[in-house]
Design a protein around this nucleic acid. Structure first.
Lengths: 231, 231, 231, 231
DNA sequence: TATGAATGAGGTTTCATTCAT
DNA sequence: TATGAATGAAACCTCATTCAT
């Protein structure tokens, strides 16, 4: 019992506290890069600057590490999205544009983008992490966007046949951009047809909003049928 | 060399000829389901109804099997798409609608849909198969659609700011549907927000074509309503 | 029962009769080159111009093939040596020189040289083939040479302390030359210190015979001690 | 990196340091006994008292283990021979006798004797280890002996037609004795004609030295007896 | 008699996990 | 708390042998 041993080694203490997060980051990066099965647990440990054994002090198995990774990097961005969506006001298309651009730029640039790929590659091997993901990320995200679309319809700004389909039309390219970032783009393949993800996001939203936009009330062309769109 | 036997064993010969395709099908299914690294080569063999050793009579290693799978299931659907696109005539939106619905339904329902997932999960481990994929599938597919869009612009049917972005807006949801089929949908997760892929395809194309449709020449800006939407 | 079917196919019949010998030759060459364990039975078959299955029509297993190889290539040269040794007459050193040069040249150049290496590499894995070898090759060979040395001693031509050691001094370099031919020399290693095997055989025998030669009866140099050699 | 532990685990450290040598010894014994291809890597591990996996902590593959074995057990005895040869003085036959007996007894009794057999059995499969062996063992050994013979010639003690051949006559039986120790002798075959290796070494050297010894200047060709032997 | 497709035991190698220090 | 040597189950792959043709 030495008098000053209440915090025997502040340096190591700080390391210790940071360890789980460091390991989770390293694990995310490697699982996204190589896939869960092809990543050796020692690689994760080394990437986090610790030894094999230390990993097992924090996570009881490689599979539990995967689940911890998913949970750790999952919900954060979605929640901020929900709050922003609720807080915003004004013309819905503008609100959505602002919201989606901010929100998705953060997602695309942060670790969450990797989780999209990880979920796709690993759900069938670990279905329970999928349940969690849908409940905590996919469903809320879908709800935010469909809520906004419905608000636009109510306000007469949008004309949309099938709101759920429209949500998919809006979000799926954004999701696939995230996946793309961690697959083809990460190994420099397909540069010929690659486009800047942020520029694409703007162009995509513009196109989709134009597709959802309410038409002017058909100024007066005799027969009352609206001019509609082609297909 | 027995002197008089041009076809020494027709039965075995027929099995031998069929084996590679059987193995490739089994391999595709398992690689898509579990990922390359998590699939044991004996599983592939058993799924094809042969023993471990037989697999190695036809493919020198598990990695070569993967490459053969990609090559085998890759380009076929794209080529039919190209021909149909060239042959079709009429209003571009209708042509595209017909083409994409037929083409993508075949892709979605056939083995090619799995290859999309497989490519995403494995490119970073086997970059050379990615090169091939982009060159033989992604680039031609992109070219078909951008060609049609440009034809629509030339004919005055479409107004599109950025053709390449529009191609992505059109195709990415279709691709992600394929991936989805083999990830979440395959393990019955996320049913709440799942939508019928064919119905979605129609709704998606309708929305996007509406977003690309040329506007009537603005009959006369009488009333102060703003015609378009913000972004 | 067609009238002329007693020998239905003279060509194949001839092939069939030659098969075992062809297989044994191919097997010897490969076993000597790579060792028994490292030689695949299909390699033997292919080298003999037949298929894997055919090998098993003539030899029930790879191990039996090895035993057959030993037996086939073993004793022949020894027997001719014995006959020549018995038939020869004249000064023993001359007889031995002639005998050994002829005999060993045939052995060195023929397949028997390989069997020396094969025995060395495989006895410990297949001791029973060793018994056979010693009884049929080593012991008779030793007996021929020791018989000749003893004849030389009896005739006053040789002075030899230990006949068995002298046999080893004579034969071991010849044996090792055979082994060398199939190890280092076969892969072109050690050319710097390599010597022509036939030239070496002559030089070696000359040196050894000089070492065994009877000394003249010490002409008369006062004190009866003979000048002798050092060691 | 724990801050204050320069030698974190002395016990394990000591085992780790000893492991490679233990594994190399076990590997040499087994490779010499059964041949490289017929030895299972697990056998090597078990013989060294560790598990299969541990072997691969120290050597990346079975083939690398073989190379390490060769390098580890190769050159040591040769170097002591060189030094002793340089240091010795006196009548060359005596010097050589002493040197060769001491030197070769150590070689015969030590692990180097096994390496002779190993080289013979494996050069053709791994030619690069042969280069090393010739350069580091065969050539220096040859040089020691030929140097001594030349010294004997210079001093008028020896008369030798072909020095290189004489080196072979001297060394080849010694080498073959080493090989013999690990082939026939090790499985108790051929006892009838087996001789004590040390006794043989003495007898062999005596015979060869007698064959190389300078003749007295032919005191006076008085009596008609012919002095030498034919060949 | 000859073939070569097929098998599966067995070999080499990897890697998640444990545990003594 | 941290290490890394050690383990052994399990993966990939080979090859002796069989057998339908």
């Amino acid at each position: 019992m030495p008098p000053f041993s209440s915090d025997p080694c502040p340096f190591r203490r700080r390391r210790k506290d940071a360890r789980p997060a460091e390991l989770l980051e390293a694990a995310l990066a490697l699982f996204v890069e190589k896939g869960f099965a092809a990543t050796r647990s020692e690689e994760v440990a080394r990437a986090a600057g610790v030894s094999k054994g230390t990993l097992y002090l924090y996570f009881p198995s490689k599979e539990e590490l995967l689940k911890a990774v998913i949970q750790h990097f999952m919900g954060t961005e979605i929640e901020t999205g929900i709050q922003e969506a609720a807080a915003a006001d004004g013309p819905v298309a503008e609100v959505m544009e602002t919201l989606l651009v901010n929100w998705w730029t953060r997602i695309y640039e942060g670790p969450a983008s990797g989780v999209f790929k990880l979920m796709i590659t690993e759900v069938r091997n670990f279905p329970d992490i999928g349940e969690f993901w849908v409940e905590r990320v996919v469903a809320p995200g879908h709800a935010i966007v469909s809520g906004l679309i419905r608000r636009g319809i109510d306000r007469g700004e949008f004309e949309v046949d099938d709101v759920d389909s429209a949500v998919h039309s809006i979000l799926m390219p954004l999701i696939l951009e995230c996946v793309h970032k961690h697959s083809f783009m990460a190994c420099g393949i397909g540069k010929e047809i690659e486009i800047d993800p942020i520029a694409f996001m703007h162009a995509h939203l513009k196109l989709v909003f134009r597709g959802m936009a309410a038409r002017p009330p058909a100024p007066a062309p005799a027969g009352g049928r609206k001019a509609g769109q082609a297909a």
